[in-house]
């Protein structure tokens, strides 16, 4: 989990935003949190959300705790719904990545407005573009990150391989 969060946060920070889509950034750490929401216990997911959020806030110069709050909420929602969806299917991961991307943008924007940060008087169109961009990136990245982390978990023995019949 530590390696996944560290590498994810550094890559997320290093990747430039999509100018055409409101400078949307790839929500890599959020996808890591969603993976833990789908495949691990609530406690581990919450830990990943808070640790990943603190790391993101430090690297991306956001007020401390904002990303942790949003990641936790989105992770908890995903954790609650994991038993009523096909949680092993790629399509499910894409849908959750898309919805989480929208939630991340709106959640962070809301917190930044409430916190009184020196945020631009953002046009709704800019926020909408950003939400769409983050959603698209989440939709694309979620299945990839899920697959990578699953492989990593198998490699490290965190997932027990089912015996072949």
């Amino acid at each position: 989990m530590v390696v996944a969060l560290l590498v994810g946060a550094v890559v997320q920070q290093a990747l430039p935003g999509l100018t055409l889509l409101g400078q949307a950034k790839a929500p890599i750490v959020l996808c890591v949190v969603l993976y833990y929401a789908f495949h691990r216990s609530l406690a581990l997911m919450v830990l990943a959300a808070i640790a990943g959020g603190v790391l993101c806030d430090s690297l991306e110069a956001l007020p401390m705790g904002y990303s942790a709050a949003v990641f936790s909420v989105l992770g908890i929602v995903a954790w609650f719904y994991r038993d009523v969806v096909f949680s092993a299917r790629g399509v499910t991961h894409m849908v959750f990545g898309l919805l989480a991307g929208v939630g991340l943008t709106i959640g962070l924007y809301g917190l930044l407005l409430i916190g009184g940060e020196s945020l631009r008087e953002a046009a709704w169109s800019w926020i909408a573009f950003k939400a769409i961009g983050t959603a698209l990136l989440g939709m694309i990245l979620a299945p990839i990150i899920f697959t990578v982390l699953e492989r990593l978990d198998r490699l490290t023995g965190n997932i027990v391989m089912e015996p072949s019949s």
């Binding site: 609530l42 919450v46 808070i50 603190v54 401390m64 908890i76």
Partner: peptide
């Protein structure tokens, strides 16, 4: 147990934000 974890997480996040 889940309820207590959520409460603890909420408290931790509020503490972090108000550091």
């Amino acid at each position: 147990r889940s309820f207590y974890i959520l409460i603890l997480a909420g408290i931790l996040i509020v503490v972090i934000i108000n550091l």
